[in-house]
């Protein structure tokens, strides 16, 4: 048993630098969407490697160990006590190692996702069956989301009727929108252009049609848009 304890603690020890590495990797670059892509690539690599190892092993055994004659039986030896323990603790340690590695990476990016920058532009989102309303706080209320490029934007969301979920695939963010509760997401548009925000919590008949444009414009254009939108809003009221 002592032998396996040594192996186990050795493996756990080897993990710590990994966890530390995972934390370091995210400093400097603060755009969450880019970091998400990087994490995704890491995970994709991780699961592909595991998948290929197990897949190849399965194919190899399935081909190699075909029955030679109908009366053949397999010859898997009975495991000794030490082998049994080894086949429990070593794989468990490896699985745990991978879990811990991924948890550490996932956690550090999660912290980025939850810590809204101080200077973020705040927009209030209210969802209805089946559209969104964006309130910029100065009388501007729109049904499309216009945001400035390069500035963090935080959406503070609540629902007027049923559950919805606000999803901008381009910016890798999503959070449910609920009546009686407030949720938030933040993102930072990198380049100008129009993308889609869409509902991802089943909300009834037109759930599949509940989407809107997210228009990222250069900061100057955004200021101009805001002035114009405000004037229009005042004219109407």
């Amino acid at each position: 048993m002592k032998f396996f304890n040594t192996i186990l603690s050795g493996l756990m020890g080897a993990l710590l630098p990994f966890a530390a590495m995972a934390n370091e990797a995210y400093e400097g670059d603060m755009n969450p969407a880019d970091q998400w892509d990087r994490l995704w690539n890491t995970i994709l690599l991780d699961i592909t490697v595991i998948g290929v190892i197990f897949g190849v092993a399965a194919i190899w055994m399935m081909v190699k160990y075909r029955a030679k004659s109908p009366d053949d039986v397999g010859s898997l030896p009975k495991l000794t006590r030490a082998q049994t323990m080894a086949w429990i603790f070593i794989p468990c340690a490896l699985f745990l190692a991978d879990d811990l590695f991924l948890s550490a990476k996932g956690w550090s990016l999660w912290n980025v996702y939850r810590q809204v920058p101080e200077d973020a532009l705040e927009i209030k989102v209210t969802s209805y069956q089946w559209y969104w309303e964006f309130d910029y706080g100065d009388g501007i209320v729109t049904e499309e989301l216009t945001v400035p490029v390069g500035k963090p934007v935080v959406l503070r969301m609540t629902s007027e009727d049923v559950l919805h979920s606000f999803f901008i695939p381009e910016y890798r963010v999503k959070e449910d929108v609920m009546p009686g509760r407030v949720t938030y997401i933040w993102f930072q548009p990198k380049k100008a252009g129009t993308t889609v925000a869409t509902c991802t919590e089943f909300c009834g008949t037109a759930h599949g049609n509940m989407y809107t444009d997210v228009i990222a414009v250069p900061p100057d254009d955004f200021t101009a848009w805001r002035v114009k939108a405000k004037a229009e809003a005042e004219n109407e009221s």
Binding site: E122, K124, R156, T158, G180, R181, V182, Y184
Partner: peptide
């Protein structure tokens, strides 16, 4: 309150 919640 409904619209106030979350107001910073």
């Amino acid at each position: 309150e409904k619209h106030l919640l979350g107001q910073k």
